[in-house]
Design a protein around this nucleic acid. Structure first.
Lengths: 146, 146
DNA sequence: TATTGTTATACTCTATAACTATA
DNA sequence: TATAGTTATAGAGTATAACAATA
């Protein structure tokens, strides 16, 4: 095979297309760098649960997924002991989900742990973490507004 | 259900964690807004193929996926007629992949088409497209450097 | 033997449709 | 009847291991 393809920027593409490509490729890369303890969807749900106990429906809405999707994510989180689930005493249909001690520890561990992959990328590109933080904040705002 | 959860920014999280969360959630959203003609992974591969005919292995390397993954994406692209595949006459193990006319048309269509979802988000947040383009460029640089 | 690509298999992530239990 | 959540099923996206064809 000929020497490959350190993919050049796709400069002709419009912003929407570039956003789609970079987000999908970054998602792939970050997945490959995954935590051993929990998958990305589990970590994402965990970050929501951390802000306070929630029902499955609230979680699904916050994460913008359908309820069956959240049922499964929550089931796996419970299986590995990262959350606890309590039936609402006033309405037995409702399940309230909270972080377990294990879950709290995992979040704390993640927070204090330097992400080696990202740190390396930032060094390689001479990007200040502050610049990346600003870019991330912009994407968050696009994502969170209704 | 109590009034929900227009998820507030997770300001305590470190940049790496926020990047992971926002990329995974954006990927989910963009997937939900998917093109009818081709899935995100197909479009991503197509954008690489557009730069010139490539072998499966080169494509896999450019997209940073394993060969079996690319075999499948290419199979679907071929099925729906977006690419053509020609055996290399000098080495019959090798398959060379190029855009079909349909594939070229799809790319042109995407390029000229305004992405309604993204446009709405930008309007809602008062974000200039130029600001988003800068943020996307930063992510691209992190992704592409070796 | 080494390389290119495929097949077999499995896991994650997600959806829709149909269901159960409770209200 | 309506709501909260689950189960059944399916498809996309990805990986590793084992293989076939060709070099």
């Amino acid at each position: 095979m000929t020497k490959t393809a350190n993919a050049p920027a796709e400069i002709d593409l419009d912003t929407a297309t570039r956003l789609r490509l970079v987000v999908m490729r970054l998602a792939r890369r970050l997945r490959q760098q995954a935590e051993p303890d929990a998958s990305p969807s589990m970590l994402s749900a965990l970050a929501v649960i951390e802000r306070g106990p929630l029902t499955i429906g609230e979680l699904a809405e916050a994460e913008r997924v359908q309820p069956p999707t959240m049922t499964r994510v929550v089931a796996r989180l419970e299986e590995v002991g990262l959350i606890t689930r309590d039936a609402d005493p006033e309405d037995k249909r409702v399940a309230r989900v909270s972080l377990s001690n294990e879950g709290k520890k995992l979040i704390a561990r993640n927070r204090s742990k330097k992400n080696a992959y990202l740190a390396k990328r930032l060094r390689a590109t001479g990007t200040e973490e502050r610049e990346l933080a600003a870019a991330v904040a912009l994407l968050e705002s696009i994502l969170n507004e209704d």
